[in-house]
Design a protein around this nucleic acid. Sequence first.
DNA 1: GGGAATATTCCC
DNA 2: GGGAATATTCCC
Lengths: 240, 240
Amino acid sequence: MNSCAPFVRKTFQLVSDNTTNHIVSWCNNGANFTIWNTQAFQKQILPQYFKHNNLCSFVRQLNTYGFHKINATDAVDGLEFSHPSFKQGAKHLLAKIKRRKSKAKKSDAQSSPVVQDANQLKVAEALISLVKRQQESEQLLMSVCAELQEARSVINSLQSGDKMASPSLCGKRAYEEVEVGPSYPVAKKLKSEENLFSVPTQEMFSFDELFQPTQSTCAATMREHDAPIDFDIKELLLDF
Amino acid sequence: MNSCAPFVRKTFQLVSDNTTNHIVSWCNNGANFTIWNTQAFQKQILPQYFKHNNLCSFVRQLNTYGFHKINATDAVDGLEFSHPSFKQGAKHLLAKIKRRKSKAKKSDAQSSPVVQDANQLKVAEALISLVKRQQESEQLLMSVCAELQEARSVINSLQSGDKMASPSLCGKRAYEEVEVGPSYPVAKKLKSEENLFSVPTQEMFSFDELFQPTQSTCAATMREHDAPIDFDIKELLLDF
DNA sequence: GGGAATATTCCC
DNA sequence: GGGAATATTCCC
């Protein structure tokens, strides 16, 4: 029943106490509450419920628990606050009022990344190095594939004289995943590489969720349906 | 002068107050202090300095600031505490007494990794996927290089009849970093790839510092002086 | 003794 | 309003 935070329970009690309505009371038909006399509230009310007599500390707690101040209008003065689960006579709603956690900084495109300790810095550096290494691997792969294509063109032109197949090339292949014969066009071969590179869809994580591609590279021409690897690592670390 | 924490300053004051030496006082020639009467200390002393009257809370603060309890001996009773910078008459030492920070969990080889929030979990998954992708790229690169080697063997055998060079192969190369002619042995070519792959030494981070290789792969044969990419990602995340 | 949640203070 | 340091409470 009384599973709400001590601060919320005490605030409900002091607002509901009809003997002090001239200092603090429900208002707006029980939807909000108002501190009518801040001096009396500080000196007479707060010390009865809390370990201080500062209105600022009380308001700080209200904010921590998600209360909002109502802008003063011409009709009423006093300090008025509201919370969707803090209503007159509704004790059962108080358990829904939760203390706000110290929030992790959300990414702001302008702000610089905050890396909080040496270990997280190391993780960041690991990611950066790994991404660089991956880019280099993929570029090198492209260049070697281009060379292979040229070599096969040479073979085809050399063989055009006798139209003979080349059994030795097919027989000595070391890695079975590369099933490309001499007459197989390189464009088709690169299509099969896409399957090897792409992250399987059954995994709970995809690159696109985390990494915002910031520029296109030659790798994009090779892997059309996969996110480029050159995401902005700083973007990711903003959420740390 | 008085840059020490409020708790330390107040504790020095209440211990040094000679009018309450029957309740709490310096002892051991001013090296430690003793609470002689815990009931009187709670009810009469604590509320004068703090917002509570609980001995437990006071002791909790002593521990937070690095004080240690002295084991009771036959000679003295009472609650005795000590701190290397909390000595009778030595106000100037109080600034050296620092509050202990909530310590980040250190890695323990037996304990399971603790990934503290959803974002760090995403980073972990990103690293895992990136490592997998890198392994696949390097394996594919090896297989393509093997194919290229075979293709060049075919070219050499086909050319052995007329000993003619192949100018078209050199002229149409798309990527300048691959400077390998038709007669260049593949073993030498892979040596040059090592330079492309390896992390530059002038960077402040190296893979070997962070990642413990857990098994050797075929990639190790290609990149002799570089750490294998298949480190244990869980090892790294223990420190989060 | 100390981790961790809540409370209070201080400051922007 | 809310971040962050310190204080108090609660619990192991």
